[in-house]
C-alpha cells in the first residue's frame, strides 16, 4: 500500500528525476573528508535547519556548540567549536561529511554521527535504555541533514 503511494508520487514528479532515492546511511561515499552528493538531491532549507539545531528533541546541536545566529534559544554549550563562520571554514561537502559522521573527518571527535545506523556498542531503543526493537533509525533524516548543512553554509562572518 505504502509502496503504491510512493510510486505514484515518484511518477508524478518523474520529470524532475531522482525523488525516490535518498542516499541511505550505508551508501554515503566519504572522500577526503567530504560528501559531494546531496542526500536528497535537492537543496536544504536553512530556516528549518536552524530549528533542528535548536530543538532538544531533534538535532540539539547547540547542546555542544555556540551559534550566535541561534541565540534566541537558551543555553548554548561549549563542548565543540563555535559554529559562527562555519560556512567560511568549510565547504558544503565538508559540512555534509561532518554532520553525517564527524568521525570520518575528525577520528577522535566526541560528536555523534547524525546519519549512521551501525557500528555502535550496545545501541538502545532511543532514550528508553532498552534494546532496540527494530532497525536503528539515523538521528536525523536525509532531509534534516541537508537542512542543517544549508543553515551552516549561511554562517559567514561577512
Amino acid at each position: 500500500m505504502k509502496k503504491a503511494i510512493t510510486t505514484g508520487i515518484a511518477v508524478a514528479l518523474s520529470p524532475i528525476a531522482v525523488w525516490a532515492a535518498d542516499v541511505a546511511p550505508g551508501q554515503i561515499v566519504y572522500e577526503d573528508g567530504t560528501v559531494e552528493q546531496s542526500l536528497t538531491g535537492a537543496p536544504g532549507d536553512p530556516e528549518n535547519g536552524a530549528i533542528i539545531m535548536k530543538t532538544k528533541s531533534s538535532g540539539n546541536c547547540i547542546s555542544c556548540h555556540e551559534v550566535t545566529a541561534l541565540k534566541d534559544a537558551q543555553w548554548h554549550g561549549n563542548i565543540g567549536p563555535v559554529l559562527d563562520g562555519a560556512g567560511d571554514r568549510w565547504s558544503e561537502a565538508q559540512l555534509r561529511a561532518i554532520v553525517t559522521n564527524a568521525k570520518e573527518v575528525f577520528p577522535e571527535s566526541m560528536m555523534p554521527s547524525y546519519y549512521r545506523v551501525d557500528g555502535f556498542t550496545r545501541p538502545g531503543n532511543a532514550y528508553t535504555g532498552k534494546a532496540p526493537d527494530g532497525p536503528i533509525e539515523p538521528l536525523l533524516t536525509a532531509q534534516q541533514v541537508e537542512d542543517v548543512v544549508a543553515f551552516l553554509s549561511t554562517q559567514k562572518d561577512e
Binding site: 547542546s63 543555553w75 554549550g77 563542548i79 555523534p112 554521527s113 556498542t121
Partner: peptide, 24 residues
C-alpha cells in the same frame, strides 16, 4: 567505552569536558 547511538563514554564528558557546559 563509547556506548550507544551517541557513542559517548563516561570519559568524553567527565574526563575530557568537566567544567564545560552541555546545554544547561
Amino acid at each position: 567505552t563509547r556506548y550507544g547511538q551517541l557513542e559517548l563514554a563516561c570519559a568524553n564528558c567527565h574526563e575530557d569536558n568537566w567544567g564545560n557546559m552541555i546545554r544547561a
